[in-house]
Write a protein that binds this DNA or RNA. Structure first.
Lengths: 146, 146
DNA sequence: CTCAATTGTAATTTATAAAATTACAACTTG
DNA sequence: CAAGTTGTAATTTTATAAATTACAATTGAG
């Protein structure tokens, strides 16, 4: 498998923004430090989230803020904006089945139905978890000043 | 995030074996032709399926046959034997979150619950589709001699 | 208005993982 | 034993993800 960490990165970004944006200017540089990633990747992900209306990003002066209520942001909406390809190709298909073999001709069509069902199950589960849920979990047992 | 093509390959292999093994000796060479893959990959996948008790493979003389009833073989059992890593790491995690950031310290733990839920949904859906289902679909509208 | 800090984005490089290929010992059966 | 095959390790090739470099455009402070 090819692990694509964009989704985890995006959720990390949204959590740090939700937690710290009121007190700190959340620049790509700062967020990159927190995630252990690099600023360009952060800017690209923030760019996608901005286009989807999930965050605001201040050009020039810098800093990202949430544009939606955490209850309105689901793992699905985040993943499908930052990495749509992974979700549509969740299950990889081998690329060159023989068209001379009756099974080879049909294999992609045969797999379509179960693979779609898997995709729908993933979507439904992702839609069931919001940023608010993650934040609630985050604040569990933390003193309120953090 | 994306599951590699081993799972699709394995399902293709099982279908051609189910359909043709009574009349033909299903060698890795022959199956490789049908799948558009290469014989070594086929042998490796058949090796995993054999260890899981799903197929029999004749050493020396060659040829693979189903060992279980197609009703007993699910997409889950196939995927989890040929590519367990993809299923446990379905959602990739970014590897180096800062331990100095309170979010960075917690992010992997925070994502664990929703990511497990996604994995369970995938498993449940995969368990709901058997090789028999795929074969039924395959034979839909085909004359009985194929 | 200028300057420092920052974003947006393209281009390039590096790292990593998947898949194909090569090679060969071990097995099976005629 | 000879031909055909499997099992498996090692290597090479290819594809993709992620990091890096570079720089124009933007913003707000001074």
């Amino acid at each position: 498998m090819r692990i694509n960490t964009k989704c985890s990165l995006a959720l990390h970004i949204l959590i740090v923004v939700a937690v710290f944006a009121k007190k700190n200017k959340m620049t790509s540089e700062l967020i990159a430090k927190s995630t252990g990633s690099n600023p360009v990747m952060i800017r690209n992900i923030l760019g996608s989230l901005r286009q989807a209306g999930i965050v605001d990003v201040q050009r020039g002066s810098g800093g990202a803020t949430l544009k939606l209520d955490p209850k309105e942001i689901t793992i699905w909406s985040v993943c499908s904006t930052v990495d749509p390809a992974s979700l549509t190709n969740l299950m990889g298909l081998h690329p060159n089945p023989s068209q001379r073999c009756p099974v080879g001709r049909k294999i992609h069509a045969l797999l379509k139905e179960p693979y779609c069902a898997i995709g729908k199950a993933v979507r439904k589960t992702m839609e069931g978890c919001t940023l608010a849920d993650l934040l609630e979990q985050y604040y569990q047992g933390l003193p309120p000043e953090l």
